[in-house]
Amino acid sequence: MKYTNKITQTSIGLLLLIGAFQLQAQKLVDRNGQVAFKASEALFEPVEAKNQSVTAVLDTQSNEIASLALMKGFRFKNSLMEEHFNENYIESETYPKATFKGQLKDFDITGVTNQPQQVRVDGKLELHGKEKAIETYLNIGKTGDVLIITGSFMVTPDDFDISIPSIVKNKIAKEVTISLDFNLKAL
């Protein structure tokens, strides 16, 4: 009888432990998310690039979301533009990455359906050694066990102390649209 008691106790303990681990492991990750930006002006060559290897992590317990894009991962159609982006504007050797850390507001993972819903996110975008507060709405839905997050927001080169030489000033938009597309899964 004593033994069975001990066994029950141990197994309850074990179950609790497993439960605790499951709660901890509520991170959804995308290792190859997409982030693109557009700073094109009409009549001029499009200024746009895409990074298809952006990391995004969502903690579904705390609703904290983090994302990281390596600057060298942004690919332009025009290789010269890519070179200028890295060397003159973003200075990717000194500032190799952009990070976003934020919080989803009033978000409940259990309420997510196939029909994307708008969720507010407040956070900070850091790039080129500067930080900017970002408040925007994301579209969050799911397909099977994949959480799909899309959205876009605007920033300016000024926000991040990126100066555009006057010679190309009219070829680069004052406002840059950043769009994102993440497919997050439990790893």
Partner: peptide, 16 residues
């Protein structure tokens, strides 16, 4: 491949 940098969220080096 080409070394793109270090991803501190994943703690992995990325190569493309």
């Amino acid at each position: 491949g080409r070394c793109v940098g270090f991803d501190e969220l994943l703690l992995q080096v990325k190569i493309d």
